[in-house]
Every structure is written in C-alpha cells, then in structure tokens.
C-alpha cells in the first residue's frame, strides 16, 4: 500500500510538473520567435531561402486559420462549407506569401520584448519594440497571442504602432466582397490572383 501511495504521489507530481513545464510564457514565446526570425534574416542566403525558413516558423507559430476566419468578418456567417474549405486553403497560401514578402525586406531586425498584458484566458498582448536604426525610428509592435492552449500559444495579430494588421486585412477583404455585392467568390478570385503572381 505504501508503495502504491508513493507511486501515486510520484505520478501526480509528474503530471503537475509536466503541465507546468508545458505552459509557455507568451513573452518568452515571442522572444524566441523574433530571435529565430532575426537569425534567419541575418543569414547569408538567398531571399527565397529566407522566405522558406520564415514560412516554416509562421506555420508553427501563427494561427493562420484563426486569422483567416477573423479576416472574413461578417461574411464568416454567410459562407458555405465548401467555400470555407476552399477559402482556408487559398488564404493560407496568400498569408504565407505576403508574410514572407513583408518580412524578408528587413535585414537585421532587433526586437526587444518589453511587457505582457493578459487580457483573458484566451489572449495575452505582448508588447515589444523594433529597435531604431539610422534608417527608421523605434517602432512599437504588439503581438496578440492566442493562449487557449497554454502549451501551444499562437500569434493571431501584429499591432504596429497601434495599427492592427488583422483588422486592416479584414477591412480590405470586406471591401472586395462589398464591391462584388457580397459575393465571397470575388475575394477567392482576388486571393488566387495574388497567389499566382
């Protein structure tokens, strides 16, 4: 019986410590990602190679499906299942392409994480700054981190100097759909055109 109790205690201890170690601090999470991105951008490799490595980081750490759904805005409710599946696939390609294109222009971005603000169980905003250089001033970057699964935090938005990229994208997509009298296919077509450029 004593052996059983010891075993149970050890089992519970292991479970609790495993849970503890699996929960990732959002600030550390962002620091690690920016560090990895910076290392890639500093590498003496081609732009395409840089883009591929950045895409790998994004696929692991960004909630692309979540951003895609958010970007659909009110049209999320009217889209049918087939269209949604098609959209998710096209959006993923679009996101990764534009993401790597935007980021690969920076040669040596140094980002310092400053603080974090836990909004609720699901979201933490991590504040950071892109250190100033001769070419540009210091830029504030906030990261909306989705923490529903604390062991697997994911980035959902980048807020640069207070301007949300996800919101901008949502309003852009809405504009495309509205211009086509609410037809989501117009957005799919535009995204496909972008992907094939």
């Amino acid at each position: 019986m004593k052996i059983f109790k010891k075993f149970l205690f050890l089992f519970l201890f292991l479970i609790s410590s495993t849970t503890y170690t699996l929960a990732k601090n959002p600030s550390v999470f962002i620091s690690e990602i920016t560090e990895s991105a910076s290392t890639i951008l500093k590498k003496d490799i081609s732009m395409d190679e840089k883009a591929n490595e950045l895409i790998r980081i994004a696929e692991q750490n960004v909630d692309i499906d979540g951003i895609g759904l958010y970007s659909l805005g009110k049209h999320r409710k009217s889209i049918d299942t087939n269209q949604l599946e098609q959209y998710k696939s096209i959006f993923r390609e679009y996101f990764l392409k534009s993401f790597s294109s935007r980021l690969s222009q920076y040669s040596d971005p140094k980002i310092n994480v400053i603080s974090q603000n836990v909004i609720n169980d699901k979201y933490t905003i991590v504040s950071s700054v892109l250190v100033k250089t001769d070419e540009r001033p210091e830029i504030k970057i906030d990261w909306r981190v989705y923490t529903k699964d604390p062991s697997n935090p994911l980035i959902r938005d980048l807020i640069i100097e207070g301007l949300s990229l996800a919101r901008t994208q949502k309003e852009e997509f809405n504009s495309v759909i509205q211009s086509a009298n609410g037809d989501v296919n117009a957005l799919l077509e535009n995204l496909q055109n972008f992907n094939s450029k």
Partner: peptide, 15 residues
C-alpha cells in the same frame, strides 16, 4: 501585398 490597396490605406488611416 494588398489585394485592395485603397481599402488598406483607408483602414490604416481610420485606425
């Protein structure tokens, strides 16, 4: 990187 540059600029300005 925009599919509707006009809408992006509008959104950023209003934000």
């Amino acid at each position: 990187n925009s599919i509707d540059f006009y809408a992006s600029v509008k959104s950023l300005y209003l934000q």
